[in-house]
Design a protein around this nucleic acid. Structure first.
Lengths: 228, 228
DNA sequence: CGTAGCATTGATGTGGGTCAACGTATGTGG
DNA sequence: CCACATACGTTGACCCACATCAATGCTACG
């Protein structure tokens, strides 16, 4: 791992408060691996062996059942995933798949649990991280139950807006799954938001009138202040 | 509080491992209150002041946005709620409302945080409880995104089946909100499940053919093994 | 009794899924 | 360098699940 990456990981909320020695141990017991795009890192229903930290690239959390599949979230540097399964020593509820060439730090579950026992500050950080992941999921569930497709898209755009534009970092079909709709319907949702003066140029979306978009999206900190 | 209720709380996963002295302190700093049915215990967007333990009765977790409202879950004795908001010292993402006459133990957030700091076993239990709540919510989200209404109802029935029958503990309209549909559509979902030989008698549902119901419901431990 | 709230049923509308066709971009092999 | 293949995005036609609206019956309760 490059030193500046170790530094980045060190400053994550999950790791920033634990003792130097414990942090070093976690890194030493972990593996930093490269993966090609489209590779399935973990499968649903597998026992939880590793805490994963995305160092480079992007990972998609997916789940399938009875022939249907949906995306539950994306993880980008320097996000983590599968913490809950590691803690309860249970099976994964979601699969993880790389969307691009990625480098992932894999910390053995036992190392995480050992460090928690040894380092109260780390235990506290784990608890906070979990609470945050939990709240994010509650917000996602609220969004799913209380909004329609166009509203979910509008809020996603507002969250990712930067200088009046959004660069969609994944294929549109993947974004559609993330938002809980089909690719066809995502296209139509974009068309609907045309009334709010948005303009789609391939992966780039221009928000010419943020006010109009907000009027339709009705963003709320109780749904949209997700940490990821 | 009646002694046998204190005992029940003591045996909860959240409290069973903490030291006697700490448990006593938690109870002493807490308030046991009675509430009439239909009372709003906490509002969305309020700061998190108390961890709540339902000692008697039943509580509904609800959320509303832009004129719509939905139910995220029920809490029955001896379940807890609002742990995540207490830990991160943030506002509530959900409101809580009594469905019946209820008695609630309210433990000040500061007491919870103090005890966590003082008692590693309690901290571990909190972490485990949070991880479980998180996993339950992920399962709920999966159910919402991967199943239709009749399937969600079928699985709910299978989870609550007892001796070939289910006694619905709430008004049907409330169950409908819990399952993410309108009361009208819940009625129709029951009608649909008539093909699987279920029989509705007011709040009582008879499952004459569990096999047929399972064939439609396709229950999965990765969606339906919720702890609550 | 009379009234209010809930469950159910029917009629109808709409959001979103499905299926098919087509355009476009990218990449491959001749 | 060009034909071709492949995959993605978009659009249109159609259908299904679910919401909405309205009417009716039932039950509980004052």
């Amino acid at each position: 791992m490059r030193p500046e990456e170790a530094d980045e990981i060190r400053t994550l909320p999950l790791f920033r408060d634990c003792a130097d020695a414990h942090f070093t141990t976690l890194l030493e017991r972990g593996f930093l691996q490269r993966f090609p795009p489209g590779l399935v890192l973990i499968h649903e229903d597998d026992p939880a062996d590793f805490l994963h930290v995305v160092v480079e690239g992007m990972v998609e959390m997916v789940t399938s059942h009875a022939g249907r599949e949906t995306t539950l979230g994306f993880v980008r540097p320097f996000g983590t995933f599968i913490l809950a399964a590691v803690l309860t020593d249970q099976v994964y509820l979601q699969a993880a798949r790389t969307l691009e060439k990625s480098r992932i730090l894999m910390v053995p579950a036992a190392a995480v649990r050992d460090t928690m026992r040894a380092d109260p500050a780390f235990m506290t950080a784990v608890t906070r991280e979990l609470a945050t992941a939990y709240r994010d999921t509650v917000m996602e569930l609220k969004s799913q139950k209380l909004r329609n497709g166009a509203e979910r898209l509008a809020n996603w755009l507002l969250r990712h807006e930067r200088d009046g534009a959004v660069l969609i970092p994944v294929e549109k079909r993947t974004l559609a799954a993330r938002l809980g709709m089909t690719p066809e319907n995502l296209s139509r949702a974009f068309a609907t938001l045309g009334a709010c003066n948005i303009e789609v140029q391939g992966p780039k979306v221009l928000l010419h009138d943020r006010g109009a978009l907000e009027k339709l999206a009705k963003p709320s900190p109780l749904i949209d202040d997700v940490s990821t």
